[in-house]
Design a protein around this nucleic acid. Structure first.
Length: 392
DNA sequence: TCTGGGGTCCTAGGACCC
DNA sequence: TCTGGGGTCCTAGGACCC
């Protein structure tokens, strides 16, 4: 069944850093941050100072994605730190997806900087040649490099694209699994993270090959469905489809690490209301309603907890979501200093699909009219043009 | 580890129903 | 309640991905 497919996994090398570099060069900057030890990182004074992406010359210093800028700078004092620019990233991502969609209609965007392409095998005599020409076109026309992994399912294509970086084309066909994938550390396998690695190592499973040759029944007993999944992956088994991106969004969330811990209820409420504005606007933009609201808290001690509420009626009203959010927070907060606040909307349904009582309908309509008015003022004059909840 | 932000999926326990 | 079995829904938490 899968033998007739040919899958490419395209992965931008150090995406945020490459894209920031391209944008800076286009602006007329003379330094290409890809050629010096550099990272994309947030603002340390507001406690968002972690490494989001690193340049190739930053790698020998032992700098890793996710570590604090403080620690990264200790490893490399001359490190250049560039703030992220998500508008640029979205534009670069769109440009790449547009270019790639010229090659096949079967394209699945997996994240902002990764996608899968599917071809039928008979339509393509020389996959390596095609991959190289795509790679060169992206480099020439868009100014950044990618890795392309080739196989006949998504898992193997994705594993292949990681093999040798940057600016490379790699394959892991089924007959190459043993030679190219089994010698890798087990945590290199897609879906094996830190926790699973620890548990697997305790079972004397150190490489992907160890996992592939382990008794699948024992894995299933210990890890349930997850055990079977990673065993299949280790053996290169994956029958999932390349889905054109019609997958419905299931959650809309927004969270923020606070510049300083919050200890006052009113302060927390203010932050939550601005998070509500953000998610409610995105909800309406996607023509959805939600019927579940969830509030998350991270304490100064890095303890996380959350509280959620399912509603009888789906809504897209900022006021309604705000009301529930504040209520959830007040029910949940245990008065510890707060490091992060988050809110997530879920159980999303298509607008107009829900049925509600007449009374709720009238209230909804009023809220909707107000929300629409505010949304359109914002889209004309910017986010700061109007404030819903005052500023006290 | 001086530890971001936006997602998906799974599990376990409890409530409730027949 | 010396109190079964199966199904569904809800909630909280945690693992993984980028």
């Amino acid at each position: 069944m899968e033998s007739n497919r040919m899958i490419f996994h395209v992965d931008v090398n150090s995406a945020f850093l490459s894209w920031s570099a391209v944008e800076a060069l286009q602006r007329g900057e003379s330094i290409d941050i890809r050629t010096i030890p550099s990272v994309i990182g947030g603002d340390e004074s507001s406690r968002r100072g972690v490494v989001l992406a690193k340049s190739v010359p930053a790698k020998p210093y032992g700098i890793v994605t996710g570590e604090s800028l403080f620690s990264a700078r200790r490893k490399c004092p001359e490190l250049v730190v560039v703030p992220p620019n998500f508008n640029t990233y979205e534009k670069c991502s769109r440009n790449m997806m547009n270019l790639l969609s010229e090659y096949t209609p079967l394209i699945e965007q997996y994240s902002i900087d990764e996608c899968f392409l599917e071809f039928s095998k008979n339509s393509m005599p020389d996959p390596l040649k095609l991959a190289h020409s795509i790679k060169e076109r992206i480099s020439k026309e868009l100014g950044f490099t990618v890795n392309i992994g080739i196989s006949n399912n998504k898992l193997l294509a994705k594993m292949a694209s990681e093999l040798n970086k940057p600016d490379k084309v790699n394959t892991i066909y089924p007959n190459e699994i043993k030679e190219k994938m089994w010698p890798l550390q087990v945590e290199e396998l897609f879906m094996v993270g830190k926790r699973a690695k620890e548990k697997l190592n305790k079972m004397y499973i150190y490489t992907i090959g160890d996992l592939a040759n382990y008794n699948v029944d024992l894995l299933r007993d210990k890890f349930k469905s997850y055990g079977e999944l990673i065993w299949q992956y280790a053996n290169g088994i994956d029958n999932s489809q390349v889905a054109e991106n019609d997958g419905e969004l299931k959650v809309i969330s927004n969270s923020t690490t606070l510049a300083a811990n919050i200890t006052e209820r009113n302060e927390a409420h203010k932050v939550l209301l601005s998070l509500v504005e953000n998610v409610a606007l995105r909800l309406r933009k996607s023509s959805k309603h939600c019927s579940c609201v969830s509030v998350s808290i991270r304490t100064s001690e890095f303890k996380n907890y959350s509280h959620q509420k399912k509603m009888m009626n789906a809504t897209a009203s900022t006021d309604k979501i705000a009301e529930i959010t504040l209520q959830l927070f007040d029910e949940t907060w245990k008065k510890e200093p707060i490091r992060l606040l988050g809110i997530a909307l879920s159980h999303l349904t298509e607008e107009g699909y829900h049925q509600i009582s007449l009374f709720e309908n009238i209230k909804e309509d009023k809220n909707r009219a107000l929300d629409n008015a505010i949304d359109s003022i914002r889209s004309k004059y910017g986010e700061a043009a109007i404030k819903r909840y005052g500023n006290k």
